[in-house]
Design a protein around this nucleic acid. Structure first.
Lengths: 171, 171
DNA sequence: TCTAATAGTTTCATAAGCTAAGTATATTCG
DNA sequence: CGAATATACTTAGCTTATGAAACTATTAGA
């Protein structure tokens, strides 16, 4: 599929493109954060919400995964998860093949809470896009694809956990 | 300027586009945050760094501006700025036309610190883009433009401060 | 087995965050 | 003008988040 009119585009250099991304992405992020803030349940702090969302994306993740991908240290991750476990939103088991390794999963309640809040984020962004031309929307949509393709790799842990969670035991 | 081959594009709906953005933007943001974390001086916490960067973008900003745009409450902003003032990175004066209003500016040292760290962020993102085709780079660059256009409005304070900072006095 | 490495937890101190209450300055309106 | 209200920020008091360092338990290596 031919997507762009190659005759008329003047491609950006990698550096200029990075520059632009660094400036633009935080603007969107601010809106997203604001929506999260306004839509998460009051008993969930923002850091806790982030952990919850991560566990949703990566069921079975370990504490190290959480720490690494959210950008916090292990002790902090451990304590945040403590809170989520006490609230009955996350299940913390330990892998049977490596009993040091924590295996985190959402409880049914955790999924429900996350979905309810998560659904509210997208409309906030959508409102910002309401006035855009089809062409601009297309550019944004395509850019998101490119980003997914290039940046999603960061989300794969080096030491993958077993796909099934059947070989775990509660603490 | 004709940018896209209109004959071949199938535009996304606003909702789908928002969906994609919500998924893609955090991926880039993670890389940016990581770069900041790794490149900021150790004596600057991440929240402090954010405040410093904001004051850089908006010299003469008030505490309310900081609070609103970073997404924290006024007391928190006040204390973060306290820390930056103690470190001699930010100057806190008060407007003479409205002596309640704080006027924040970077010190020379603040500018230096910020530039040194800031310069290191872009290359991290650039590395991620190294393998992209000119076409993909173009899409990203254009998308950033669109985002700037739509989302930057959030960054303009309703009550602009006086352009010159000459009519301020130290506390 | 004895040593090292890994995954988490605990402890302790500090920073960040909020709400509520307080201070000082501006504005509004009778 | 002068009292009431609003604004901009600060302070106080508390909870949560955060990281460094030390500790426990498990696994891997020599």
């Amino acid at each position: 599929m031919k997507l762009l009119d190659n005759a008329s585009i003047k491609p950006f250099s990698v550096d200029e493109c990075a520059d632009r991304l660094v400036n633009a992405v935080p603007l969107v992020m601010k809106v997203i954060r604001k929506e999260i803030r306004n839509n998460r349940p009051s008993y969930l702090s923002l850091p806790q919400f982030r952990v919850l969302a991560f566990v949703h994306r990566r069921e079975g993740a370990s504490l190290s995964d959480v720490a690494e991908h959210i950008g916090i240290t292990l002790p902090t991750a451990s304590k945040l998860v403590d809170g989520l476990v006490k609230k009955d939103l996350v299940l913390r088991k330990y892998s049977t093949c490596d009993r040091r390794r924590a295996v985190l999963n959402l409880t049914a309640q955790g999924s429900a809470v996350l979905e309810a809040s998560g659904a509210a984020i997208q409309p906030g962004v959508a409102r910002m896009l309401a006035t855009l031309s089809p062409e601009d929307l297309y550019v944004l949509g395509r850019a998101a694809e490119v980003i997914q393709h290039v940046f999603a790799g960061e989300c794969i842990s080096k030491k993958p956990f077993p796909a099934n969670n059947s070989n775990t035991k509660t603490s």
